[in-house]
């Protein structure tokens, strides 16, 4: 178990999590459905978590993994609030298409 990671270069983790992160970014830019945008953001956070854990493991420092907890805590709290807002909004507009939300423009 000790040499668990030695086979895998850190670069691989960086590339993987960056790819996931960028897919998340793309999702935010690409989609109009608020829920999917929301999920893309979750994907971004998760990609970050992966990188944090990887760094943590390669540094031999538990702080990174502890930070992941806080990220998760934040993600959970964000979801709670975000979905609450979404539900409130849906009650009024019956839509979650973010482009419908353009009453504020102009």
């Amino acid at each position: 178990m000790q040499q668990n990671i030695h086979g895998i270069p850190l670069d691989w983790f960086i590339i993987l999590s960056t790819t996931l992160f960028c897919i998340g970014v793309m999702g935010v830019l690409f989609r109009r459905n608020a829920i999917i945008i929301f999920m893309s953001i979750e994907l971004m956070l998760n990609a970050t978590n992966l990188l944090l854990v990887a760094f943590s493991a390669y540094h031999g420092d538990a702080a990174g993994q502890v930070f992941v907890f806080f990220t998760m805590a934040v993600a959970a709290a964000e979801i709670a609030v975000g979905l609450a807002i979404l539900v409130v909004m849906y009650r009024n507009t019956k839509s979650v298409d973010i482009d419908v939300l353009n009453r504020l423009k102009g």
Partner: peptide, 29 residues
């Protein structure tokens, strides 16, 4: 956009491995 972001980040992060010299220590997780 996201593709470019990916290329930029990956490009500049390449070979980060050498920099982090600390040997891996098990059991931190």
């Amino acid at each position: 956009t996201s593709g470019l972001l990916l290329i930029v980040i990956v490009g500049s992060l390449k070979a980060a491995d050498n920099a982090i010299a600390t040997p891996y220590q098990g059991g931190k997780g």
